[in-house]
Amino acid sequence: MRVTFAPPGARQAHLGMLLWAMLVGLSFPAVGLVSEALPPLLLTSLRFIIASLALWALARRAPDWWPSRRSLPLYSLMGLCLAGFFSTMFWAAHHTTALSMATLFVSVPLLAFVLGLAAGVERLAWRLPVILALGAVGALGLAWAESRNGSTGLRFGLGEAGFFLGCISSAMYPVLSKWGLSREWLSQSAAVRTFWSLAIGAVLIGLVGLALEPVANLGVMTPRDALLLVYLGLCSSALTFWLLQRATAALTPGAVTAYNYLVPFVSMLLLFIQHPERTGWVWLPGSALVLTAIALLLRNGRVST
């Protein structure tokens, strides 16, 4: 069987990101089933290692799979972005509320658009920012609907500031990928780009985990935890980051990250399936705005030059 590494068209990239949003949204219940006693940073490092091993067989088939002197620093920066986001996310979870984190995460697509403009991989036009703003309002509406189940409100303190830095790291990941592709510094294979960024990210997150978390806590891992970890590594890391890298070759960073708005919508659907009694009109405005933004994005998807 012949393996092709040609980048996808815009339509294929958008369809791939729809699948990405479904996979990411479905991964949250799986994460919730993992034993709480396990160290989260070390688990993330193991998850990325599993994902890297799954991609290695495909990545090594590419003629340019081994990083050059120019691409290795860029892959390292991409891995640092992944390490920065996941590390600050786990740290912020103990210093802020879930609502505050969900609200700040809405800024990622707009941050990616602005950073992409600065890097020269986005086009200055009104349509995409309007779509991103519409999706952001919808995602905020979903966060507000979820907040009605608790009494903790929005705030901004040290935890929120730390998580916002993590959001900047998350927004930088597709920008660096697009910037490296535009200069032909990175491999044309999405599997290669995903492999090296995840592998380097696994090392960086693992080093942070070794410094902050007791390794002995991994001893409480059950067979179910191990199966969940393999599932997360294969479906929620290897496949999702490959889809993201694949879409980055055809779309701009702002368009790629706009699919973050669909993740809370998928989580909301799962919530209604599990707890239909929590269905209410408060979810309707945010859902309608998110779906409208994604429909506009599919219709007016921008292919970067």
Rank of each mutant, 00 (worst) to 15 (best):
L228G: 13
A171I: 05
L99D: 07
G141N: 02
F86Y: 13
L232R: 02
L33D: 15
L115C: 02
P7T: 03
R148K: 10
R61W: 04
A102C: 08
G219Y: 12
L291Y: 08
L227D: 12
Y75G: 06
G166V: 10
M172E: 05
L110S: 06
L244T: 09
A249D: 06
A21D: 05
Y231M: 13
T222N: 13
A133H: 10
A62F: 00
G138I: 01
A10C: 09
T88Q: 02
L207Q: 08
L298E: 13
R224M: 15
L251D: 12
A199F: 02
A62I: 03
L289W: 00
W283V: 05
G138A: 07
G219R: 15
V256L: 08
A10V: 15
A216R: 13
R11Y: 04
R47N: 04
R246T: 10
Q188N: 15
A199I: 01
G166I: 14
S76C: 09
G9I: 12
L198S: 02
M22E: 05
L270Y: 10
G301I: 14
W65S: 04
L104M: 06
R127T: 14
G280S: 12
T248H: 01
N300M: 11
T305R: 15
W91V: 10
G157H: 08
S236D: 03
S68R: 05
V108I: 11
G162C: 13
I205K: 05
P67T: 00
R2Y: 10
A295I: 06
G153I: 07
G116T: 03
A62K: 00
L15I: 11
R193P: 04
W144S: 09
L229W: 08
L207P: 05
L229Y: 06
L46T: 03
L289C: 02
A112G: 07
R155C: 02
L228F: 12
P223M: 07
V121Q: 07
L77W: 00
L186S: 01
A6M: 14
M22F: 05
I200D: 02
G79E: 00
A295R: 07
M1V: 12
F156L: 09
T152I: 08
F105Q: 12
L297C: 08
G280P: 04
G180W: 05
R69Q: 08
L296G: 12
V130I: 12
V106M: 03
V114W: 09
G79N: 03
S177V: 06
